[in-house]
């Protein structure tokens, strides 16, 4: 176990290195530079050159990369080329917000999905099943920005309600935070629910068909005892897998929801960075997301061993 962990953590290094090179390369391939974007269509060439120079962007690319990566290795993410703001504290603050949004969204998704998924598996091909499956399909086939806009519009139009405009963390004021995050989290949750429901249903269908369930049934156990006692544990591995993937995926995929609801999360930070060509922001942000993503995957593997002690590393 211990050596496995060390090996896994060691394998992160080349991945993170690869990501740092990839993001640096793509970003510098993208036309445009921070100064001309900042100055817009009223810029003069001297102004652009002066501004780029003051941002250290007149250096050769390789030097820029080396300077950046050596900073990162010392825990220094640098400063935003536009605002001069330290990047790491921003990343951490925004990551906390994105994390709350994501966890809340995934929770909403699960709360919707797991009971309905199980229900639809137990009553396969019944009316309940069909309703659940149609909902699932809507969830995965309507773009989330359309769902989010509908929620915003609906709540303001029919309830005259709009979420509080200042983002609050859950540990500061849970009720206020709940109000802040409910609409964006629901937007995410609907998509999450769709995926989890599908997975839950098929995982249950599969386990319900296994020999030991049949045995349990033959022994005269009630259907629900079987579901809760046997099938649930055995179906949980694929469910945990997809949930973990979703958390990892949503961390980066919350971009659109954050943009729509003006949630100052990490996704929005990076997106804005791309638009402004704020290279250190994008590079640092993406690297951080990737790190979290990889760590979440590691965590999921560890959860496996906890759910099913037969899995050994």
């Amino acid at each position: 176990m211990g050596s496995y962990l060390i090996k896994r953590v060691a394998s992160l290094i080349p991945i993170l290195f690869g990501i740092s090179v990839l993001i640096f390369t793509i970003l510098h391939l993208v036309p445009g530079d921070p100064a001309s974007i900042m100055l817009g269509t009223s810029a003069t060439p001297e102004a652009i050159a002066a501004l780029n120079k003051s941002m250290g962007l007149d250096q050769p690319l390789i030097n820029q990369y080396l300077r950046w990566i050596s900073g990162i290795l010392q825990g220094n993410f640098g400063v935003s080329v536009h605002t001069g703001e330290e990047i790491l504290p921003q990343i951490l603050k925004r990551f906390a917000i994105t994390m709350q949004l994501t966890v809340f969204g995934v929770l909403i998704g699960w709360v919707l999905a797991i009971p309905f998924g199980i229900l639809s598996a137990i009553r396969a091909h019944s009316k309940t099943d069909i309703v659940v499956r149609v909902f699932t399909l809507l969830g995965i086939s309507v773009p989330n920005f359309a769902i989010g806009t509908l929620l915003l519009l609906g709540f303001s139009l029919y309830f005259n309600w709009f979420p509080p405009i200042d983002v609050v963390n859950f540990w500061e004021d849970p009720i206020e935070a709940f109000k802040v995050f409910i609409l964006p989290a629901t937007t995410m949750g609907i998509v999450v629910a769709a995926g989890v429901m599908r997975m839950t249903r098929s995982a249950f269908l599969e386990t319900m068909d296994k020999d030991f369930i049949r045995t349990a049934r033959a022994k005269g156990n009630s259907k629900w005892t079987i579901v809760m006692g046997h099938a649930f544990r055995n179906s949980s591995i694929p469910i945990v897998t997809i949930a973990g993937m979703q958390i990892g995926y949503l961390l980066g995929g919350s971009v659109i929801v954050e943009q729509l609801f003006s949630i100052p999360g990490l996704g929005q930070y990076i997106l804005e960075g791309i638009y402004q060509r704020d290279y250190p922001v994008v590079q640092g942000g993406v690297l951080f997301v990737a790190l979290v993503f990889v760590l979440v995957n590691l965590l999921i593997d560890l959860i496996y061993t906890w759910i099913d002690p037969r899995i050994k590393y």
Binding site: T149, L152, L153, S156, F162, P164, I165, L260, S262
Partner: peptide, 19 residues
């Protein structure tokens, strides 16, 4: 100055008196 990038959001906010 409250940053709200999406027009739909600004509209909902002014309607409900949040801005």
């Amino acid at each position: 100055f409250q940053i709200m990038k999406d027009e739909a959001e600004r509209l909902a906010a002014i309607r409900s008196g949040k801005v």
